[in-house]
Measured scan of single mutants.
Amino acid sequence: TCPLCKTELNIGSKDPPNFNTCTECKNQVCNLCGFNPTPHLTEIQEWLCLNCQTQRA
């Protein structure tokens, strides 16, 4: 489950994953609780959960 919103993560499912791993804290959170803060920078593959995003802001 997502630590932030308690959504079930579909780990091991044949569906596309509905979660990602935060590059900062390494927690697995669902796609609604994390995002790529710099989608225009292709050389930085970063994906932050809302916790890390808030701490950085």
Rank of each mutant, 00 (worst) to 15 (best):
T1V: 06
T1R: 05
T1S: 07
T1F: 04
T1G: 05
T1A: 02
T1P: 05
C2F: 00
C2I: 00
C2A: 00
C2Y: 00
P3I: 09
P3D: 13
P3R: 06
P3C: 14
P3N: 07
L4P: 01
L4S: 11
L4A: 13
L4C: 10
L4V: 04
C5N: 01
C5R: 00
C5P: 00
C5K: 02
C5Q: 01
C5Y: 00
C5T: 00
K6Y: 06
K6Q: 10
K6N: 13
K6T: 08
K6I: 08
T7N: 11
T7V: 05
T7M: 04
T7E: 13
T7D: 10
E8A: 05
E8H: 03
E8V: 04
E8K: 04
E8N: 03
E8D: 07
E8T: 08
E8R: 05
E8L: 05
E8G: 09
L9A: 12
L9K: 12
L9C: 06
L9V: 09
L9T: 09
L9W: 03
L9F: 11
L9H: 05
L9Y: 06
L9G: 10
N10G: 04
N10H: 02
N10L: 05
N10F: 08
N10T: 13
N10A: 12
I11E: 15
I11T: 08
I11D: 10
I11G: 05
I11Y: 13
G12E: 13
G12P: 12
G12C: 13
G12T: 12
G12D: 15
G12H: 06
G12V: 03
G12F: 05
G12W: 04
G12N: 02
G12R: 09
S13D: 03
S13E: 05
S13K: 15
S13P: 09
K14I: 02
K14T: 11
K14H: 13
K14C: 02
K14Y: 02
K14D: 11
D15G: 07
D15E: 05
D15H: 05
D15R: 05
D15L: 11
D15T: 11
P16M: 08
P16D: 01
P16G: 03
P16N: 05
P16H: 11
P16R: 06
P16C: 10
P17Q: 08
P17C: 02
P17L: 08
P17D: 07
P17V: 03
P17A: 06
P17M: 03
P17Y: 02
N18T: 08
N18D: 11
N18I: 03
N18P: 10
N18G: 08
N18H: 08
F19E: 06
F19L: 07
F19C: 04
F19D: 02
F19H: 10
F19A: 08
F19P: 03
F19R: 05
N20E: 11
N20C: 08
N20Q: 13
N20P: 06
N20F: 09
N20R: 13
N20W: 06
T21P: 06
T21G: 09
T21W: 14
T21V: 13
T21S: 13
T21F: 08
T21Q: 06
C22E: 02
C22Y: 00
C22V: 01
C22Q: 01
C22N: 01
C22P: 00
T23G: 14
T23F: 15
T23L: 06
T23W: 13
E24C: 01
E24M: 09
E24D: 11
E24T: 12
E24R: 11
E24W: 06
E24N: 06
E24H: 09
C25L: 01
C25W: 00
C25M: 01
C25R: 01
C25Q: 02
K26W: 10
K26F: 10
K26E: 12
K26A: 15
K26I: 11
N27I: 11
N27S: 14
N27E: 11
N27D: 08
N27Y: 03
N27L: 15
Q28V: 10
Q28K: 05
Q28G: 12
Q28L: 09
Q28N: 07
Q28C: 11
Q28P: 08
V29T: 07
V29L: 04
V29M: 10
V29K: 04
C30T: 02
C30H: 06
C30F: 00
C30M: 01
C30A: 02
C30I: 00
C30Q: 02
N31A: 14
N31M: 07
N31I: 07
N31P: 08
N31F: 14
N31R: 11
N31L: 13
N31E: 14
L32Q: 15
L32S: 14
L32T: 10
L32I: 08
L32W: 11
C33P: 01
C33I: 00
C33L: 01
C33A: 02
C33D: 04
C33Q: 02
C33N: 02
G34F: 10
G34A: 08
G34Q: 09
G34H: 03
G34S: 08
G34I: 00
G34D: 09
G34M: 02
G34L: 12
F35I: 14
F35E: 15
F35Y: 12
F35R: 15
F35M: 15
F35W: 04
F35V: 14
F35C: 12
N36Y: 05
N36V: 13
N36D: 08
P37A: 10
P37W: 11
P37H: 03
P37S: 11
P37N: 01
P37T: 13
T38I: 07
T38N: 02
T38S: 12
P39N: 05
P39C: 07
P39M: 09
P39K: 15
P39F: 12
P39Y: 07
P39V: 13
P39A: 11
H40A: 13
H40T: 15
H40R: 13
L41K: 15
L41A: 14
L41Q: 11
L41M: 06
L41W: 07
L41N: 14
T42N: 14
T42H: 14
T42W: 06
T42D: 10
T42S: 11
T42Y: 04
T42A: 13
T42M: 05
E43W: 08
E43P: 11
E43S: 06
E43K: 11
E43C: 04
E43F: 04
I44L: 13
I44M: 05
I44Q: 13
I44V: 11
I44H: 06
Q45S: 10
Q45K: 15
Q45R: 11
Q45I: 10
Q45E: 03
Q45Y: 12
E46M: 05
E46P: 06
E46F: 03
E46Y: 04
E46V: 10
W47H: 07
W47S: 10
W47D: 11
W47C: 07
W47F: 09
W47L: 13
L48H: 06
L48F: 13
L48W: 09
L48Q: 04
L48T: 08
L48R: 09
L48N: 09
L48D: 04
L48I: 08
C49W: 00
C49G: 00
C49K: 00
C49L: 00
C49M: 00
C49R: 01
L50N: 12
L50Y: 05
L50S: 14
L50F: 05
N51F: 04
N51C: 01
N51H: 07
N51E: 08
N51D: 06
N51L: 03
N51W: 04
N51P: 04
N51M: 02
N51R: 06
C52E: 03
C52H: 04
C52G: 01
C52L: 00
C52D: 01
C52W: 00
C52M: 00
Q53H: 07
Q53A: 05
Q53K: 14
Q53S: 12
Q53C: 03
T54M: 02
T54P: 14
